[in-house]
Design a protein around this nucleic acid. Structure first.
Length: 433
RNA sequence: GGAGGGAUGACUGAGUGGUUGAAAGUACCGGUCUUGAAAACCGGCGUGGGUUAAUAGCCCACCCAGGGUUCGAAUCCCUGUCCCUCCGCCA
């Protein structure tokens, strides 16, 4: 959530920045809702103050020796009047507050000034490249064709669960596991993240904290509401579990930064992406990811975004996979992000770069929703932390990248050296047939 | 699945209808003392919102959440959520 006071005081600037993100802020509606809410709230508060004074009077009168009945009689007339007034005011107050909340919870984060203009991913700006796409003296196959003989089984996935699911077998499954282990080890051992194991099912509050709810319910898988339990949602990313670890806490300044990582499956309904990336395992309902989350002092988040990006890049470099770093334009930024870098890996089968990691600075947007704060030694008061998240990396897509970049003319996969310790001696994945 | 016990401020923990936003302790901040530090002593110390030029005052709300009883609720009643203990079942 944006700081409502800031929005109130700087509506034009806020609207201008939101427009960069393809979000049209209706200033008039916002101001009307905001001022109406405050007006009604002030009135209701004043009536409540009156009422409080009356009940205190009763207490005083009883203390002076009056019987409770007598004392009560002193205030009944005034009270009846107040009560009817209050009832009307309070129901309006409640309704306005709910509307106000819905409105402000649905406004995306402001992009930073440095974010490039642009409506769609076509306007993203390439910052740098690493590595050179491999040259083949044959036509490189994509991971679907390669995988057919190596244990990548989309039919089995469909049989069990429908479209956008996959079963992986044999050495390829081992490679998938090796990648996740390798990534987690690098982030923990080399970059100092704390390894976490977290729930894959969370409650709605957690998703509200990170911004998936209330706006993007259709992207999530929800458990049935059978019984009286609150529904659970499958996490669309470990960002939800890790970031919400600091929800409703006041941290010591010395605890910052907090660096967390976890390897989890992620579940996305992919509503609205029908027909996109239907071939292969680029876009699945279930995929594994190693996630990095940093909780920082507000002054450190810009720097941390750069650091986290290099932490994600380190994985690709160790795997010797060519990639480029993109600064997302305003129109391509996620709901909670103020600034995002995407890492795109080269896929020879598609002859293009495809997203494999996304690193975002959410500044205080999620922190405000979560009430995640630290005690600021300067003021002695709690202040909102900044939150950042990034993939380090998406495991499924990394598997694809390794397959396509490390294939040979026979359709075998040559495992990058960094993974050898994780592959139990296997250096080449041979075709089965 | 059965039986019971809980949820109070950054933390520990009192408090069962009337200036209680809430004792006490810890932590934290300021001061005295000290060469310095520690200890001791004194003082301060919740969050959100409204009003406002104000991070000054004043006001409202908040003792898990939502309803209710009452002139008045942290305290009584109902519902829900979460946590814990014991038994059963179970990866």
């Amino acid at each position: 959530m944006l700081d409502p006071r800031y929005v109130r005081d700087n509506p034009e600037e806020v609207a201008r920045l939101l427009l960069k993100k393809n979000f049209n802020l209706d200033i008039e509606q916002m101001q009307q809702l905001d001022s109406e809410r405050r007006a009604v709230q002030t009135q209701a508060q004043n009536r409540r103050a009156d009422k409080k004074r009356l009940s205190r009077q009763v207490g005083t009168l009883i203390g002076q020796g009056m019987t409770p009945e007598e004392a009560r009689l002193q205030v009944t007339d005034q009270l009846a009047e107040l009560d009817s007034e209050l009832a009307a005011l309070e129901s309006r107050e409640k309704e306005l507050l709910a509307r106000w909340n819905r409105f402000f919870m649905s406004v995306p984060n402001l992009p930073e000034e440095a974010v490039p203009e642009g409506k769609s991913e076509a306007c993203n700006v390439e910052l740098r490249r690493w590595g050179t796409p491999p040259r083949f003296d044959f036509t490189p196959a994509d991971h679907v064709d390669l995988g057919a003989a190596l244990g990548l089984d989309f039919n089995a996935g469909a049989k069990l669960s429908g479209s956008r699911f996959v079963v992986i077998r044999n050495k390829l499954a081992r490679l998938h596991r090796a990648l996740a282990q390798f990534m987690l080890d690098v982030q923990v051992d080399e970059h100092g993240y704390q390894e976490c194991y977290t729930p894959y099912l969370v409650q709605s509050q957690a998703l509200e904290g990170t911004g998936q709810l209330p706006k993007f319910a259709e992207d999530l898988f929800r458990t049935s509401t059978e019984g009286q339990h609150e529904p659970h949602y499958l996490i669309p990313t470990a960002e939800v579990s890790l970031t919400n670890l600091v929800r409703e806490t006041v941290l010591d300044a010395q605890q910052l930064p907090i660096k967390l990582t976890a390897h989890t499956p992620c579940f996305r309904s992919e509503a609205g992406s029908y027909g996109r990336d239907t071939r292969g395992m680029i876009r699945q309902h279930q995929f594994d990811k190693v996630e990095m989350v940093c909780i920082t002092h507000p002054s450190a988040s810009a720097r941390t975004l750069e650091d986290m990006t290099t932490h994600a890049e380190a994985i690709l470099q160790k795997l010797e996979l060519p990639y480029r770093v993109m600064a997302l334009c305003g129109g391509d930024l996620g709901f909670g992000a103020a600034r995002t870098y995407d890492l795109e890996v080269w896929l020879p089968g598609q002859q293009q770069y495809r997203e494999i990691s996304s690193v975002s600075n959410c500044r205080d947007f999620q922190a405000r929703r979560m009430q995640a704060r630290f005690r600021d030694p300067e003021t002695g008061n709690p202040a909102l932390v900044h939150t950042l998240n990034g993939s380090g990396l998406a495991v499924g897509r990394t598997l694809i990248a390794v397959m396509e970049n490390c294939q040979d003319a026979r359709g075998c996969i040559h495992i990058p050296e960094a993974l050898h310790p994780y592959m139990g001696g296997v250096k080449v994945i041979e075709r089965q047939t």
